[in-house]
């Protein structure tokens, strides 16, 4: 076992796949010589050289076009889009090109590529560098959407994403970069579409992902010790593919469902989860499905204001306590 930060896990994950497979290349803005704006990719240029680790201009369309064209012709490229907000300037490549080309060509083209990006708030960066865009991504058929919540999951899910033959949006939670955890020695490879039960409980199911996972776990402990409410916490880890089975099994057991989502309210992933549960196991429910989300607003910059928006441990506790009462 070794201690690794979520930030260090990014570099470890890329290195693990680049050592294994010569067809893996990595490119993005400031990722090589500077080691990334979050210093998550330090050391890759030194280990793999400028042929495989490349700094690009500030040209998000060119970055994503490059990885798409490279993936069409035999490589397994990884792109970095520095902040997920920047997808707004290159979404054509993602939503119109990568997501649809396999289908439109009747399966002639495979696109084994990964776009990793810093997603979400918590760093006081304001409305254009803090968004949680997972609900944009999962709204487009043809994209896989992955969000790790721990260093080990980051490596394991990243490896699965690189080895997958479809385009994957790999959303790293910026607010987790400093978090640390033990990780096992050796190669780590997980599977996409497998949720993890992070805490076993009997009274209610909390489904969450990414940076909300540690908050939900902390809330669950407080609810258990303070209120005697025993929550099961599920980290769904990937939105597409979605481990609906794990969610349904848990809710069938606990009879209550709460989602904790960092994305803004409308059409957040929890709405789809709520729809599935209401549709398929409605009569197993003992109460309403409740979504705990960021309000439907742009994110403010100041600490006191941002903390008011993204679901906090206290807010999760309050809502669940109130609705379970």
């Amino acid at each position: 076992m070794a201690q690794l930060s979520y930030r260090e896990a990014v570099g470890a994950a890329i290195a693990q796949e680049m050592r294994r497979d010569e067809s893996v290349v990595f490119l993005g803005e400031d990722v090589a010589a500077a080691g990334g704006v979050f210093k998550a990719t330090s050391g890759l240029l030194e280990e793999f050289g400028p042929r495989r680790v490349l700094d690009t201009p500030i040209s998000e369309q060119a970055i994503l076009g490059t990885v798409m064209g490279a993936a069409m012709t035999g490589l397994r490229p990884i792109a970095e889009i520095m902040y997920s907000d920047f997808f707004a300037v290159c979404w054509d490549l993602v939503a119109n090109q990568m997501a649809k080309t396999r289908y439109m060509t009747n399966g002639q083209v495979s696109l084994p590529l990964v776009i990793r990006t810093g997603n979400g708030g918590g760093l006081r960066f304001g409305a254009q560098h803090s968004q949680s865009i997972e609900n944009w991504a999962m709204a487009v058929p043809g994209l896989k959407v992955v969000m790790p919540s721990t260093p080990e999951d980051l490596i394991g899910l990243f490896a699965a994403s690189v080895r997958d033959n479809d385009p994957v949006l790999f959303l790293e939670s910026k607010s987790l970069y400093a978090s640390k955890d033990e990780i096992p020695e050796g190669e780590i490879v997980h599977r996409l579409g497998e949720a993890k039960i992070k805490r076993v409980g009997s009274d209610a199911t909390i489904v969450t992902i990414g940076a909300m996972v540690p908050r939900a776990l902390e809330a669950a402990e407080l609810l258990s010790s303070g209120q005697g409410i025993d929550c099961e916490v599920i980290d769904i880890r990937s939105l597409v593919p979605l481990d609906a089975k794990a969610i349904l099994e848990s809710v069938a057991k606990t009879s209550r469902l709460f989602t904790v989502e960092e994305n803004p309210r409308l059409c957040g992933w929890g709405a789809e989860v709520a729809s599935i549960v209401a549709d398929e196991i409605f009569y197993d429910l003992d109460g309403p499905i409740v979504r705990i989300t960021t309000p439907h607003i742009p994110l403010p910059a100041a600490a006191e204001l941002e903390d008011e928006t993204i679901p906090s441990v206290a807010k999760i506790v309050d809502v669940i306590k109130g609705r379970m009462g």
Binding site: Q61, A62, G65, M68, G69, A70, T73, L93, Q97, V109
Partner: peptide, 22 residues
């Protein structure tokens, strides 16, 4: 024939990706 692209401009970046691969 690596595709006909219906969003103006999209395939220029994609073509350079193929060239990168070459």
């Amino acid at each position: 024939m690596m595709g006909s692209y219906a969003i103006v401009g999209a395939h220029l970046p994609i073509a350079i990706g193929a060239a990168f691969s070459s």
